[in-house]
Write a protein that binds this DNA or RNA. Structure first.
Lengths: 208, 208
DNA sequence: TGTACATCAGTGAACGCGCGTTCACTGATGTAC
DNA sequence: TGTACATCAGTGAACGCGCGTTCACTGATGTAC
C-alpha cells in the first residue's frame, strides 16, 4: 500500500502509540487552521508547532515538511465523500431524480465549506503538477466522475462524450463550491445556487 | 482611477520612461515564468531580479512585493478576454448558435493555456480572500457571466436562476480549462472536451 | 502489586543560510537653449 | 550641433531577522515478570 499520509508510523520508522497519534492529529488540525487563516504562502513549520505548543523538532517526527502535512490532510478530507456514492447509485430518471441531484450538490458544497482551505490547496498543488496531490484529488473525485459518467453514457443521442461531460459537471461543482459565497453579493441566494446547479447536473446526466 | 497594477509610475512617484517601462515588463515576464516553473511557494523577489539580471533593489522600484507583481500580471491577463464579448453578443438560438459556444470554449481554454500559472494564482489569492485579486478576477469574468446570464434570462420556464446558471457555466469553463490536460489520460480527447463543454453551455444558455 | 526495562514522545539550544529590504550612491537618458 | 542640467534608472553592499533543520538529550508510557 502506498503511503497516503495516514501513516501510523513515525518518520524514523517506529510505530505510533496513542499519544503520538493524538499529537499528529493536533499538528494536522493546526495546519488546517493556519492554512485557513493565513494562506498557503505564510504556512511555516515553526508556526504549526507553536500553535500546538510543541517544539518545531516534534513536527519533524511526524512529517518531512509542511507539504507532507497538507498532503495528509488532503487524503483524510478526500475520504469523506463516500456518501456521494449512495446518491449516485440510484436511478435519476424517476420522480426523485432531481432530488438526488440536489442532495448531491448540497453534500458536495457542505464538504467544501468544512474544508475550504485544504481543498483549494490540494487543487493548487495538483495544478502545479505535484503527482501526489493529483493522485489524492483524483481518488477523491473518481466515484463522482464515474457515477455521473455512467449516467451520461446511458443517455441516447446526447452527443456528449460521457467522461468529458462528467468531468465538466465535476468541474462545475468544484468551482461553485469554492466560490459560492461570492455569489451572494450579486443577489443570488444559496438556495438558488443549489437548485440551479442541481438542475444543470440532472439534465446533463439524464437529458430530462 | 484605482491602481490596477498597470501603472506607468514608479513606486516613488516619478513617471516611467521608455527604459523603465521595459524593465518593468521584463520583471513581470520573469515573474510569470518562475510561477510556471517553480510554483507559488517558491516565488522570491531575489529570484525574479536575478532572472532578469538586475539587482533586487531594482524590483522595489516597480513593485512593493511579489504579490503586487502577480496582481499586475493578473490584471494584464484579464484584459485579453475581450474577444469573448463578440461571441456573446450574437444570437445562439440560430443554426450557428452551437458554433458560437464552441468558439467561446476554444478561446477560453486557449487563454488559460497561455497563462495557466498566473490565472490559477489569481484564483487562489481570490479564494484566500484577497480583495484586490477578487476584484481583478470578477472584472475579467464579468462580461462572460453577464453575457451568459442574459441568455439564460431570455429562456422561458427554464427553472434556472440566470445569474446562478451563468456562474455555474463559468465555473465549469474555468475548471475544465484548468484541468483539461489531465483528461487526456482517461482517453478523452481535447476535441471531446471542447465539444461536450460547448454543448452543455449551449443547452444551458438556450434550452436547445 | 511492584519494579525494571524497552521504546515511545518530546525538547533546548543552536547552526547557518538565504531572503527581504534599504540607502547612499553611480550611470543613462532626455531636453532646453 | 554642443553643452548643461534635470530626472530617470539601476546598483553594491550590507543588515538583520526568522525560518528550516538537527542532535544529543530528558521525560512519559507501557509491559513483562
Amino acid at each position: 500500500m502506498p503511503d497516503d499520509g495516514a501513516t501510523t508510523v513515525a518518520l524514523d520508522g517506529r510505530p505510533l502509540g496513542r499519544r503520538g497519534a493524538e499529537t499528529r492529529q493536533r499538528l494536522l488540525n493546526a495546519t488546517a487552521q493556519l492554512l485557513e487563516d493565513n494562506g498557503l504562502r505564510e504556512l511555516k513549520v515553526v508556526d504549526i508547532a507553536r500553535a500546538v505548543g510543541l517544539s518545531p523538532a516534534t513536527f519533524y517526527q511526524y512529517f518531512g515538511d509542511v507539504e507532507a502535512a497538507v498532503l495528509a490532510l488532503s487524503a483524510a478530507v478526500g475520504e469523506e465523500t463516500a456518501s456521494l456514492s449512495r446518491l449516485l447509485s440510484q436511478d435519476w430518471n424517476g420522480t426523485n431524480g432531481l432530488d438526488c441531484a440536489r442532495q448531491l450538490v448540497e453534500v458536495f458544497i457542505a464538504n467544501w465549506d468544512s474544508h475550504r482551505a485544504v481543498l483549494r490547496t490540494r487543487n493548487l498543488a495538483a495544478q502545479e503538477g505535484d503527482e501526489r496531490f493529483r493522485a489524492v484529488r483524483n481518488a477523491a473525485l473518481r466515484p463522482l466522475t464515474e457515477g455521473i459518467g455512467a449516467k451520461v453514457a446511458a443517455r441516447v443521442d446526447s452527443g456528449l462524450a460521457p467522461y468529458a461531460a462528467a468531468a465538466a459537471m465535476v468541474s462545475m461543482l468544484e468551482r461553485m463550491a469554492a466560490f459560492h459565497a461570492d455569489l451572494g453579493a450579486y443577489g443570488t441566494s444559496r438556495a438558488d445556487v443549489v437548485e440551479t446547479t442541481a438542475r444543470i447536473l440532472h439534465h446533463t446526466a439524464t437529458g430530462l
